[in-house]
Design a protein around this nucleic acid. Structure first.
Length: 898
DNA sequence: TTAGGGTTAG
């Protein structure tokens, strides 16, 4: 057979495989000639004598590209003595087919320089390259060229241009091109529908589908494959409607369409229907199996997902990187390290550990299982980590306390030229919030402004949170106002951070801003605002929020329910707290802790401890917070042995390692009981580095038990750790004073003044006509001072009428802070030295009442100082407040000597 | 020369 005959045969053949076979024959002929004549196998043209036959050369070029790829084809092209538009276009489409869009555009540039004018086929390939590269500028220039060359109404180019504009984010322009097309066929309709789905304009996509039907254009399998994902968002009913329609239209259920349907049902959490569809035909491939596995994973049916993997393997289908991704997600979902490791070994066996997708899922799995080192190991195995992989690493680090590593990874990612996206930015901002890094936050803010990433609400929210965590409230609000769209999370971040800073009244102001912005409260924001109300003991506000939460259907959510328990508990409304707790159908550990906290902090020690027992009987495992509450209760109830027992049981029975707060409670427990040496022993032998607070707690106990020697030592230790805290001087001075050493007391106070230290001015809040007002100590000119007086008077009268004033505080359902305010403002009857309760005392000299115990955390205690009010801020732990107050520091120092 | 399914991150 002559070469020309073979080539002609090749050209007339339409099957690629046949092409390939024949082409090989052509090449073998070339080879034998080449061998004989000593020329390159890739120089067939001249040897074949095809110089004169451009038609044959062009077809052979196309053959080369299809069978042997881009390089041999390019070699062929370069050797062609003559080229026309078909030769150039053939080579260009070879680049595009192989995904080498950059080179395609370069090649087009060479073509332009050569003076060759493109035809509609050339432009189609160029436009496609622009579209897939997202090169909008170049794309629009080609669009202009298309018009100039008179190809505007070309059907093929029309569809490609719709795709270009849509992919570059200009959906409206894409729609305009579509509307202006005169000959809209199934492909152009499908392209516009697909573009709208891609742009998440699902209703518009559906509307176009209906228009398509009305216009008498028949949808095909492609149309449904593109449209079905719209129902992930529009809902199952739309998906079912489309399913019904494609049946009515007699659409053939090919593998691709079947997979699209399986995905639709599985994304709508209808796995049974997904399986029914997938079993309608016997065809299965790895993509369909992966869809099924992923569907089970999304529905949290991990066992079914694993079973599907086995079934897949039994059927002879080999899992690929995507399949491993899905199953790894299942193992992270249930935090099963064992399963995760098994899959890891399978991935290694399959040689996929360097794959971006499978490797990325491994990083995520190890991070979720708290194994940052293994995650990093998996990350290092990945050949070319994508932005998603980097984000998994960064997010994992920032979520598990390795903030430094997350900053470092972020810098490395940028150094290798990968730009962060909104996921990356929100993850790294989380690290900023945790470590409260001003410099990092500001730097990231700059980057966000520059890249316009703040348009993403999640990023905006993360930035708001980072500023709010730093206490930079104005900057946080500035970000809020610059955001395009704000949601409940935006406002919840702010309120939560304000609560953490104890600025409850500012947190409650957020409600108004939220309302003005037309953003509805969700369960989380409601819980935050209830927590603010609890912090202020703003009964009216809290009750109104409670009413609103019922009306808005938020009250049944667990976070709102828990916040209600906490709110009523902190307000001293024990009955309401119980009621709120009983209303929870499935209380969690937070609910129980809330109830115990409410009881313990209002002095209902025995009830708090019996609730702890109830909790365990109900099958709940106490957590570290529970133990903090129990130790607090024991400490304040004087139950030393029981407290020690519980402390012991933490590690032995419950595998909870005591933290600094627990040790502070233990020191408080022993200190109150006068076991000062034991308390000191705890500090010396505990596995954690003592902080200033724990020394403050012990110093308070030293004062109470008048142990000067230990007190002086403890004060020195504490001052060394926190020289800016005046409490050490005040406590030590009072210790001297009470131990009959007034000179030493005086000199201690002098040293304190010389070092520029003084006690913080007091503040308190009171709710008047549903608005919370802040009072500074000594501010008798406050516009509402008369109302405060009235309110306090009525409180006291009420207390007297109830007979609660001089009874054990355990019986009082009144809110401790209000009592403190009341007693602080009005002189109470002289009733010397009555010990009202474990939590309240009366000064033997001035006969004012004083609260000894305030709420457990985030709370303050207000005590009167002459006509002034003092707030004793919480330490990091309330034990400090309790300890310092127990020893009457303020009592003598401020109240009596004002 | 134009269109199709599965995956990991906040």
């Amino acid at each position: 057979m002559s070469l020309t005959t073979v080539t002609k045969f090749v050209i007339n053949t339409t099957q690629v495989n046949c092409f390939k076979e024949t082409c090989l024959r052509v090449l073998s002929l070339c080879n034998s000639r080449a061998l004989k004549e000593g020329v390159s196998v890739h120089s067939p043209i001249t040897k074949l004598g095809l110089q004169e036959d451009l038609y044959l050369s062009n077809n052979l070029l196309s053959l080369y590209a299809k069978c042997f790829g881009v390089e041999p084809a390019r070699h062929f092209f370069d050797e062609m003595p003559d080229r026309d538009v078909v030769s150039w276009t053939g080579m260009l489409s070879a680049y595009v087919r192989n995904g080498r869009y950059d080179e395609a555009l370069e090649f087009f540039y060479s073509m332009s320089i050569s003076g060759q004018c493109p035809n509609e086929f050339t432009l189609s390939s160029v436009l496609r390259s622009c579209s897939l590269l997202g090169d909008f500028d170049y794309g629009t220039r080609i669009h202009a060229y298309v018009i100039k060359l008179g190809f505007e109404s070309n059907q093929y180019l029309g569809s490609t241009m719709i795709d270009l504009y849509a992919r570059c984010g200009f959906t409206d322009e894409a729609c305009k091109i579509f509307t202006n097309m005169d000959n809209r066929d199934t492909i152009s309709w499908t392209t516009i529908i697909s573009s709208l789905v891609q742009a998440e304009k699902f209703s518009q996509a559906l509307a176009h589908y209906m228009d398509m039907i009305c216009a008498g254009v028949h949808p095909n399998e492609f149309t449904f494959v593109k449209l079905l994902p719209a129902s992930y968002s529009l809902g199952l009913n739309y998906g079912k409607l489309l399913h019904a329609h494609l049946i009515i239209l007699g659409m053939r259920l090919n593998l691709v369409l079947k997979t699209a349907l399986v995905n639709m049902y599985s994304k709508c959490q209808k796995m049974e229907d997904a399986i029914k569809v997938s079993n309608q035909t016997p065809d299965y491939d790895v993509l369909l199996w992966t869809s099924v596995i992923s569907g089970f994973t999304q529905s949290l049916r991990v066992t079914d997902a694993i079973a599907a993997v086995h079934e897949m393997e039994l059927s002879g289908t080999v899992p690929n990187n995507f399949t491993y991704c899905s199953i790894l997600k299942a193992s992270s979902e249930i935090l099963s390290l064992e399963l995760g490791k098994q899959i890891h070994s399978r991935i290694i066996k399959a040689g996929l550990e360097d794959d971006t997708c499978a490797g990325g899922a491994l990083v995520d799995m190890y991070m979720k299982c708290y194994l940052a080192e293994d995650a990093f190991g998996a990350f290092r195995d990945i050949t070319s980590p994508s932005v998603i992989t980097w984000t998994s690493l960064i997010a994992g680090f920032s979520q598990h306390g390795f903030e430094k590593d997350s900053f470092q990874s972020f810098a490395e990612m940028r150094a290798v030229g990968i730009q962060p996206n909104s996921f990356t930015l929100s993850s790294i901002l989380r690290a900023c919030s945790t470590v409260k890094s001003h410099s990092q936050t500001v730097k990231l803010h700059g980057l966000i402004v520059k890249t316009k990433a703040g348009c993403d609400t999640v990023v905006g929210n993360a930035l708001v949170d980072a500023y709010a965590a730093l206490g930079m409230v104005d900057d946080a609000w500035h970000v809020v106002t610059s955001m395009i769209h704000r949601d409940a999370i935006t406002y919840t971040c702010l309120a939560t951070r304000m609560n953490q800073m104890g600025r409850y009244e500012v947190a409650l102001d957020v409600i108004v801003r939220m309302y003005m912005d037309d953003v509805e409260m969700d369960g989380f924001s409601m819980a935050s605002f209830l927590s603010s109300s609890a912090g202020l003991a703003a009964m009216e506000t809290g009750r109104q929020l409670h009413c609103y939460s019922i009306k808005a259907g938020l009250a049944s959510g667990i976070s709102v329910s828990n916040a209600l328990v906490d709110f009523y508990g902190k307000c001293g409304c024990t009955d309401d707290a119980y009621r709120a707790f009983k209303g929870i159908s499935e209380p969690d550990i937070v609910s129980w802790n809330g109830l115990i906290s409410g009881l313990a902090s209002t002095g209902h020690i025995s009830s708090a401890l019996s609730t702890f027992d109830d909790m365990r009987l109900a099958g709940f495992k106490p957590d570290s917070i529970t133990f903090l509450l129990v130790l607090f209760a024991c400490s304040h109830g004087g139950l030393v042995e029981l407290g020690l027992e519980h402390f012991q049981s933490m590690r032995e029975k419950h595998e909870i390692a005591p933290q600094l707060d627990h040790y502070a409670c233990l020191v408080d427990l022993l200190g109150r009981a006068g076991r000062l040496e034991d308390a000191m022993e705890v500090i010396m032998t505990m596995p954690l580095k003592p902080d200033a607070l724990i020394y403050k707690t012990l110093l308070g106990a030293c004062k109470s038990h008048r142990n000067i020697a230990l007190g002086e030592y403890v004060a020195r230790q504490g001052i060394e750790l926190d020289p800016s805290d005046p409490a050490f001087y005040v406590l030590l001075a009072n210790l001297y004073e009470e131990s009959g050493q007034p000179d030493l007391a005086k000199s201690t106070r002098r040293v304190m003044r010389e070092r520029g230290l003084k006690k913080n001015p007091g503040q308190c809040w009171m709710e008047i006509r549903n608005k919370v007002h802040l009072f500074n100590a000594g501010d008798r000119s406050h516009p509402h001072i008369n109302e405060i007086h009235e309110k306090v008077e009525s409180l006291i009268t009420d207390l007297k009428n109830r007979g609660n004033l001089y009874q054990d505080y355990e019986d009082s359902s009144y809110h401790s802070e209000k009592l403190a305010v009341a007693f602080g403002l009005l002189r109470t009857p002289r009733n010397a030295s009555i010990r009202i309760s474990k939590n309240m005392r009366i000064c033997s000299e001035c006969h004012n009442f004083i609260m000894l115990v305030t709420q457990f955390v985030d709370r303050e205690i207000i005590v009167r100082d002459g006509n002034r009010l003092h707030v004793f801020k919480k330490g990091e732990c309330s034990c400090m407040v309790a300890a310092s107050l127990q020893h009457d520091e303020i009592f003598h120092n401020s109240v009596c000597h004002s």
